[in-house]
Amino acid sequence: MSSAFLKNETADAPVVIPARAPLPPGVTNYVTPRGLALLRDEMIELETEHAHLQASEVPDGNERSRQLALLNGQISNLNQRISSARVVDSHPQDEVRFGATVVLKTQKGKSAGSERRFTIVGVDEADASLGFIAFTAPIARAIQGKRVGDAVPLRTLQGEEILEITAIRYEME
């Protein structure tokens, strides 16, 4: 059995800090006001967990040290992300930009006639299952700057689709 499936980590094994959502090099870390609030809430949670762990008397000092190192790394990564965040809270109401909630209707392709609704957000706030798509996603890049009624080609795994923008709203302020 691979050691990756075992919980038995040695005390000298390196601490692996989980990566945050990728932000391409040189790309500004745009966030919505909601996204910045979520980052700050996450920081409070991490700092609270860190304080509780520091105050606890865990019998296994090595495990406590590993957990503290992990939390320190996560806090450091989050601090970098928060400090680089640029809040976008003003928008042209008639075109797709960061923060827009967009409704698209598939005009051509396997799913012709279907509608999609999503909001363009920062990489840390993105969660496709909740309808939040990162501004770096191909579909978000394809529709930025477009207006209601515009048709946009998009290459997908199912082939090329033609998407019509049927609504644009800015509701996250």
Rank of each mutant, 00 (worst) to 15 (best):
S3L: 14
S3D: 13
F5Q: 12
F5S: 12
L6D: 15
T10N: 13
D12H: 10
D12L: 12
A13W: 01
V15C: 05
V16Y: 06
P18W: 01
L23I: 13
P24Y: 00
T28P: 06
Y30T: 04
T32M: 01
P33K: 02
G35S: 02
G35A: 01
L36E: 07
L36I: 03
A37K: 11
A37D: 11
A37R: 12
D41T: 06
M43I: 01
I44K: 10
E45P: 01
L46H: 08
E47L: 14
Q54A: 06
A55M: 10
S56C: 07
V58T: 14
P59I: 03
R64E: 09
R64I: 03
S65V: 05
R66F: 03
Q67I: 05
L70P: 09
Q74S: 07
I75N: 01
I75P: 04
S76R: 14
N77S: 14
Q80E: 13
S83I: 03
V87T: 12
D89M: 07
S90N: 09
P92I: 07
P92D: 14
P92S: 11
D94P: 05
V96Q: 03
V96C: 09
V96I: 14
R97H: 11
V103Q: 08
L104C: 03
G109D: 06
S111G: 02
S111C: 04
G113F: 01
S114V: 04
E115R: 02
T119Y: 00
T119S: 10
V121Y: 00
V121T: 08
G122C: 02
D124I: 02
E125W: 08
D127V: 03
A128E: 13
A128Q: 11
S129N: 10
S129F: 02
L130R: 15
G131F: 00
F132L: 15
F132T: 02
I133Y: 02
I139F: 00
I143F: 01
Q144E: 15
Q144L: 13
G145A: 02
V148N: 09
V148Q: 14
G149L: 06
D150N: 14
A151C: 13
P153C: 00
R155K: 15
R155M: 14
G159F: 01
L163Q: 15
T166A: 03
T166C: 04
T166E: 01
A167G: 09
R169G: 06
Y170S: 08
Y170K: 00
E171P: 02
M172L: 14
